[in-house]
Structure formats: C-alpha cells, structure tokens
C-alpha cells in the first residue's frame, strides 16, 4: 500500500517536472521564433572587406575550397596589361606560363578586339587563393573578386574560413540573395 503511494507520488513529481520542461522548451522555442526567419542563411564574402589573405584557399573544410574567383565583367577594363593576370615583371603580355599570376592557370585570357582582352575564370581549376583579386584591386578596377560558390559550399554551421578571416569579410546572407557580386549588390545611389 505504502509502495503504491510512493509510486504515485513519484509519478506525480515526474509528470510535473516533465510539464515544467515542456513549458520551458516552449518558452525557449517561442523566444527563438520571435527572431526567426523563413529564409535560410548562407555564407558569403563581402568583396569590399576582403583583404586577399589566401585563407579561403587554405582553411575551407573542402579541398579545393568552395571559394572561387568570379569576374564582374561589367567592371573589367578589358586591359591588355592586366594586374590580375600577369605577374609583375612579366617578360611579355602573353598567356605563357612564366607570365601568369594564377598558380593553377585558372584564368583564361582571350583576345576580343584591339585593345581589349577578356579574362575568364575556369572554376574547376580555381582554388580561391585571391592572388588575382589582389592584383586586380591593386592595379585595376577590382573586377576579379572572391565569392563562395553555393553549389560547392556545404554551408557549415560555423564557417571555418570566417573564423580565421582577418578582415571579417565572411558574413551570413539570406539564401534568397546568396551572392554579393561587385557591380550589383550596392544598388544604392544618390
């Protein structure tokens, strides 16, 4: 008899604690819901903060990195002398290996018309080292820049590159606008 009593008391205790936990869980969930969004969040590089440190190539959990160079063509000067393509002190402005800045020869240079050349990134070869982006920004218009390519990125909860990025250039953006391409994401103006 007494056994039964202790048992029922125990059951009552357990179920009231359980009820409390349900309430607490609901509270936490409700609070979180207040600042929740429908959108998913993805990682992206703010090209204006990027300082071309090369860690995108070395610190991504993927190898080769999900960070690739992209080319904002509308900003490109289509120059013959391209600071993002040629090494400084190049012997001539040709596509020969000794003149190329890119360690994997991922930039394809194509003559269009005098005096314009197109520079195109071969994504399969690009490792996201930012060398060309640095050259392009130092000497040119900065049209070559890095972006996280979302068909490769596994969207880690905590981006391993963001943790080591010295300029905090890797940020979370909405999945509905997953790229911060130079030339179109600052639709502001006077």
């Amino acid at each position: 008899m007494e056994r039964k009593k202790t048992k029922s008391r125990r059951e009552f205790l357990v179920s009231s604690v359980r009820f409390g936990m349900v309430l607490a869980l609901g509270g936490v969930g409700g609070l979180a819901l207040k600042s929740a969004t429908k959108d998913q969040w993805v990682w992206q590089i703010d090209p204006f903060k990027c300082s071309w440190c090369g860690r995108c190539a070395t610190h991504c959990v993927l190898n080769p990195s999900a960070v690739k160079c992209v080319h904002a063509y509308e900003l490109c000067g289509y120059c013959d002398l391209c600071g993002g393509y040629l090494i400084p002190g190049h012997s001539d402005r040709s596509t020969a290996a000794e003149n190329q800045l890119c360690p994997t020869a991922a930039i394809e240079r194509k003559f269009i018309e005098e005096p314009y050349y197109e520079y195109k990134i071969n994504e399969d070869l690009c490792i996201g080292c930012a060398k060309c982006a640095e050259g392009c920004s130092a000497f040119g218009n900065g049209s070559l820049h890095l972006q996280i390519m979302h068909h490769i990125c596994v969207n880690c909860n905590e981006c391993a590159i963001a943790r080591v990025c010295p300029s905090d250039a890797i940020i979370r953006v909405r999945g509905s606008e997953p790229y911060l391409m130079k030339g179109d994401f600052t639709a502001d103006g006077e």
Partner: peptide, 19 residues
C-alpha cells in the same frame, strides 16, 4: 594555432609591397 596573430602567413602571398 588559429588564434588571431598566431595563424600561418599566406602561402599565396602576392608581394606588391615591392611596387
């Protein structure tokens, strides 16, 4: 090794400092 200031330097450094 990943604390800021203790991380490795850039293996792909592009030295435009000389310019």
């Amino acid at each position: 090794s990943t604390l800021p200031g203790r991380r490795p330097s850039n293996p792909f450094a592009y030295d435009i400092e000389e310019f």
